[in-house]
Design a protein around this nucleic acid. Structure first.
Lengths: 145, 145
DNA sequence: ATGCAAATGCAAACTATTTGCATTTAGAAT
DNA sequence: ATTCTAAATGCAAATAGTTTGCATTTGCAT
């Protein structure tokens, strides 16, 4: 039992076997604290475990997402990104130039959601909000050109 | 000049040639008034013009979107959907069971956007908001099972 | 320690979308 | 009206992110 087993108990509690691939990905996700693509996570994982396979990464992330350990988001016709399931309700602010993602803790939508439920007879269970723009550095770079 | 040329002037004004495929797709989009996948639009178009090709549909929709005649949205790891570019700022309410999409005219995000700009130093140019839930009929069906 | 279901690696499949290319067509120029 | 040229189309093949089938390995309950 090495450091990569550190999440054994946690994984077992969530009804999953503890494998070195899962432990590693969990470690990476906790370290990064930023939504990343499966590909990127795979490349980072490879530095530690060179035999890990991309489809394993996809399968692990799928399982994690099913167990609400991670959340999967896809936006802008781009690849999906994965991050640890937020403890508080969050949204993303995405830089259109450098693709950096900033997580936002506040959400102004509760009242709106209720009013929409009333006017449409839908039962709303979820929503998705993303803000797009340019971060400070990219604004400067764009202004300089 | 037949009925499918009806948008010739409109297309020319937008710097596009008037072709029977473009006229037809525009007609369909105006009739449907609901976001649809390229595939679905292709199938509908085929009923009128059996020789139309799926990649033409994609290319036409891409061109339309570039010219802001249509808007392309992708959500829920699903295919993209296209609809006429809304005259007023809109958002979508999507039924998770039947995939029906209801367009919402209201948007509560202006103030929030400003406050995020201030707190993050981003320049926000756009946002995306989708609400997910179950429509009246699907709620009933689900309750009955 | 043993057995078995679950997880993995690898290669191949899948699917929405895009692209290359030969042909056709719209619309400007003559 | 006819001619010309760039743009649009049809078709088939490529792409890219993601998923799947299958043989092998591994975690963990017994």
């Amino acid at each position: 039992m090495n450091e990569c087993d550190s999440y054994k108990q946690y994984l077992n509690q969530h009804g999953m076997k503890s494998t070195k691939q899962r432990n590693l990905l969990l470690l990476i996700l906790k370290k990064i604290q930023e939504p990343q693509t499966a590909e990127k996570l795979y490349l980072i994982a490879k530095e530690t475990d060179s035999s890990i396979n991309l489809s394993t990464v996809y399968r692990v992330l799928e399982k994690f997402t099913e167990k609400k350990i991670t959340i999967r988001t896809s936006f802008l016709d781009d690849k999906s990104v994965y991050s640890l399931y937020p403890k508080t309700h969050q949204h993303q602010l995405i830089c259109l130039r450098c693709k950096k993602i900033v997580l936002l803790e506040n959400c102004p939508l509760e009242a709106f959601q209720h009013s929409v439920e009333k006017s449409t007879d839908f039962s709303i269970v979820n929503h998705r909000l993303e803000l797009y723009g340019y971060c400070r550095q990219c604004q400067k770079i764009i202004a300089a050109n």
